[in-house]
Structure formats: C-alpha cells, structure tokens
Write a protein that binds this DNA or RNA. Structure first.
Lengths: 324, 324
DNA sequence: TTGAAAGCGTTACCAT
DNA sequence: ATGGTAACGCTTTCAA
C-alpha cells in the first residue's frame, strides 16, 4: 500500500505538500498540485485513516449501541443510521448490548479506545455521569438517559392514549395491556398512556396488565395469562408490535377470532406488521426518521455545529389495519 | 485520557516496560510489574487502539459487507458475526452495499484504509481479482465469489430439490417457482433444483417460473402474474421466505386457501416464518451457524492458523408447518 | 509556495 | 531486567 512518502517521492515534493493537496489546506502552487494529483492517481494512493486518526484523535467513526439488532425496530434504525453516516463520511461500528450494562460499558471502552467521533446509543442502564465522563458526543435514541443529553424519542405516551382510545371507539369494553420491559422508559410511558385512558373505567384494575419483555416469547405467556384471568377481554394494547403479534398467535390458538372477538393493537410500525394476516393495526413511529435525525444531530455535535434543538419527540400515527 | 507515558511516569519506569506488562511480553520484574499495574489501575489507563493499529497495521476490526441488513437473513447473520467477533476480540464495521458494486468498492477502500484485519462479504458482483488485490483475509458468505476463496454457503440445490419434491408428495400437480434475483448464484442453484425435479413433467414449461428479487414487493407482482397465467397451480416454491410470504398474501387476496388450494414453501428459515399465520413451511438453513462459522474461519485466517477446510456447504432441513 | 521536523500513542529492537 | 529510540503514516507549525 502506497504511503504519502511514496507519493511525495514520485511527485518530487515533500510529504507536507502532499498533505496540503490531500486536505486542500494551505498554499500549493498550481503545477505542484497537478503533479501531486498525478502521482496520487498513478499509485492509486488512499490516505491511511489510522494514521490520520492518531493525529486527529478522531477516527471518522460512529459507535452504534443497540440492545439487539435482531429486533426489527433496531434493524431499521441501524439501517437509517448507517445510510446517513455514510453520506456524512462516517463509518459505523455495530454493538449489540443485549441491554446488559457490562456489555455496554465494555463497548464504551472499546469505542473510546478507537477514537470514535460520536456514539448513538439506546440504553436504559447507562447514567448521565457515565456518558459525560466519556467526553464524546452522544445522542440517546428511543430511550431517554437524562434530560440535558441530546435525545430523540417518539410520542410514547400520546401514542398509547391514541391506541387505547381507538380500541374503545371500536367498541371494546374491557381492554388489557401487555407491558414492555420493566425499567425501560418508553415501556413506562406507554403503560401510563393506557392507564390514563382506562383508569376511570368501572371494570379496571391492575389485573388487566401483564408483563412482557418486548419480545414474542414473553408476550405469548403474558397473553395466555391475561386471557385466562379475563376471558371476556375484547381488546389488547401491546407495548410493541412483536408482542402484539405474539398476542395474535395466542388468540388464534385459543380459537378467538381477531378482530371479531378480540381486537389487538401494537406499537412501532415495524415492516413486519404489514406482512401478517391479519395485518396489524399499530401506532407507527417514524423509525427511519428517528435514526436519520439522531445521526444528523450527532454529526452536528461532532462537527461543533450548533444544534437547533437538543431534544426531539417525534410524532406517531395510528394506522388502522385488520387486527382491529 | 491517560497515555502510556503517564503510566510510565507514575510508575517510575520507561514506556517500554509498561508496554511489556501490557502485552505480557519480554522480561519484567515482579515488583516492577506490580507497580505498573497499580499505576494502570490508578489512572484507569486503557491502551490507545488507534496507535496500536498504526504500528501493527491491524485494527482488530472486521468489515461486514451485506446487501441490506433489513433483510432478516442478513440481520441474523450480522448478529452471529458480531457475537463471535466480540468473543474473539474483534469489532464489527457494518456496511450495507445494496448489492451495488460501487458501494462495495468504496467500502472495500474504506475498510482497507482502516486496517481491518479481515472482511466477511456477501456479494455477487465482486470478482476474485478484486478480493486478491486487497491482500486482506476475506471470507465469502451465502454467495460464492470464486472457488479457491474461503466460502461458506448452504445446500441450495439440494434444498430446492427437497422443497419441490415435498410439494409433489403433498399431492401438488402443478408447481410454480418464484426465482431469486438474477445473477445471484444461490438463486440460480435453487432454480436449478426446482427444474431438476419438474422438468420431466408433462405440464412443465418456462411459464411456470416468474422472477422476483428476494423481496416482498417483487414477489407480490410475480405471484399475481404466475397465478394469472396458471390459475390451476396448486404449489409454489419461492426462492426465499420473504417471497413466500408475499405469495401467501397474494393467495389470500385472491381468495385462494393456503394450504388447501395452494401450498407454498419458502427457503431460509428466518424467524419471521414462524410468526405468520399460517406458519410457513420452509427449507431452513442454519443462518446463525453460517455467520458463526464464517467468523471462525476468518479469525483463523487473520491469525494465520491453519484452516481445516476452505469451503463449507452447510446442510439444510425441511421444516413442515402450515402453509403446505 | 515549499520543506523540515515534531508529535500523535504504541511496539519492538538494540543496548546496557 | 530495563531503558532509549526508531518506526508506523499522517498533519501542522515554523522557517525559509
């Protein structure tokens, strides 16, 4: 692999000059520039990013920490981040934390040691102090680490309210809720939205809530439990789509017709929700936009450009399909 | 961020000594070692990976180039690769190529400039020459770039034969095929498997084959076309699960009952195939294992350990569910 | 307009 | 057993 020295040698100039044309910085004579460019082409020279990084203390790299890329929500997010990052000249390091704080910390170390320019993270265990101490721009996505930290989330509470009210408007008399993972802020918010709507109802009590972990398996068990407790439930709001899909499966197994006997609504708007039969009614958040905007914010932060806002709460939208 | 110099200063030794204890290389006295370790702890020192990379000409990083992480097959693959890589001390750089050769080449440049130790790639456009010239260990996954290059694929042909025969055994009289993307080797192999089984049949001709692009949209159109041409088709073998799902949707829209009137089988065994109703019968390939094994191979290559085999063809398995 | 040289944080060779 | 130092490939300051 040719180095800057080779280019300098071939062009008959010093490495400093080559560096100048490379970075378009400082004075370079017209003919010198052309010579250098010729040499670069001839050697197919590409600057060594590692050496650059060492000097600059930046590696043109963004760390992306998500719980699990297998969760379709994060898959789409990752794709958005990668697209935007590439366009801005950054490269993505992918980190799956499984929501495990030790993995998160260890990734944080690795990223810092690699001079990443910035980090996009979705975590509920990380504290503001840990982030501050990194001394690297960080934007938090889908989950709020602390007020003050650049954050981008969706209207979780509002979405939950819309979802629950919608079930009511469809004639549901008793509505259960499958909660998201405990300790995750967005699960909390969605839960609260649900509660806000139904807590005044005469039939309502805590037994209409079951716990899931934002995954299918937990949802299947939770739904069984819920329907055993309350066979007369006619509506379920699940805190995300995957769990809603699990609920549909259970209903199916139990011989309950969706949506005739039981209406089910989810949250997220993952692509999967349109491929099922019945297609899932859900509160869609703009996932791709979430990732894109997060990256834009981070790029601004990394390049010390001013940030319009440090906190975005993106709107959600009810999409009615066949599960209600 | 503390550097090796700070550690050396605090411990009252030279940087060379610190480096020795860091890497457990060369002689270092017991008490000196302890002093250094104490200093390291005290400063919470972590070696600068960029500086290391510059010297070693390796960055402990693996590039993963896939067409699109949004394709569930590659999502699972990516997860497997990341898991295994992390365990082996490597970090993943994620690259979505969209099957676009320019993006692939540009990523290849970026990866080389970043001193990645190795690359895992799924591509049909890359040539053996381009890979060779990189001078970096590469393993090709899911698609064969050239004999000779380390490769890991699944039994595509065999799987297709099993799938088609299975439809026959279920009583299908006329079986159509939704092809995968033209130019992609595994699509070719699956197609050939299908052809092998049905080409002797009296009813068979080319009109029973329609073209898809391994995605849902193309499959929906292809299926419509196929069923218009041959309303009496009673079996469809789709070259992957996503397309099979698309086919099910179309059948549904057209009022054909699956599996009663039309049996559909896919290929891949993505997680999604179990969440649908009806659950999809499919030829499952061991996706996670594919990714894991590819990474293991790559690690061996990168660390100059001998490779047992340079070519793996992993077995596939028919899983019968409700779409047949 | 150009070049020499220091420095980024490591590692490894050669002395001692 | 330990230290000095060149080298990895680049950028930037300072001088010329």
């Amino acid at each position: 692999m040719a180095s800057i020295k080779d280019v300098a040698g071939l062009a008959g100039v010093s490495v400093a000059t080559v560096s100048r044309v490379l970075n378009d910085k400082g004075y370079v004579g017209q003919s010198t520039r052309e010579n250098v460019e010729k040499a670069i082409k001839q050697l197919n020279y590409k600057p060594n990013e590692v050496a650059r990084s060492l000097f600059k203390k930046k590696s043109n790299t963004i760390g992306l920490i998500v719980p699990d890329i297998m969760n379709p929500f994060f898959t789409e997010l990752a794709r958005a981040v990668e697209d935007k990052a590439t366009k801005s000249g950054y490269t993505i390091i992918l980190c799956n934390s499984d929501g495990n704080i030790d993995k998160e910390k260890s990734y944080l170390d690795v990223l810092r040691q690699n001079y990443v320019n910035g980090i996009i993270v979705s975590s509920n265990t990380l504290t503001a102090a840990q982030v501050k101490e990194l001394n690297i721009p960080v934007v938090s996505i889908d989950r709020e680490i602390s007020k003050g930290l650049p954050t981008i989330v969706a209207e979780n509470n509002k979405g939950a309210i819309i979802a629950t009210r919608f079930l009511q408007s469809k004639g549901c008399k008793k509505i259960g809720h499958i909660r998201g993972t405990h300790g995750v802020a967005n699960a909390e918010e969605r839960f609260n939205g649900y509660k806000e709507v139904v807590s005044g109802e005469p039939w309502y009590d805590d037994s209409f809530i079951v716990n899931g972990n934002f995954d299918m398996q937990s949802s299947i068990e939770a739904t069984k439990e819920l329907l055993t407790r309350h066979p007369d439930i006619d509506g379920i709001f699940a805190a995300n789509d995957i769990m809603a899909i699990g609920a549909i499966k259970v209903a199916y197994q139990l011989g309950m017709k969706v949506p005739e006997e039981l209406k089910i609504i989810g949250f997220d708007g993952i692509t999967l929700s349109t491929v099922l039969t019945p297609e899932l009614t859900t509160i869609v958040q703009p996932i791709y936009e979430l990732g894109e905007k997060a990256t834009t914010m981070l790029v601004h932060l990394m390049e010390q450009q001013p940030l319009e806002k440090t906190y975005y709460k993106l709107d959600v939208e009810l999409i009615e399909r066949n599960s209600t």
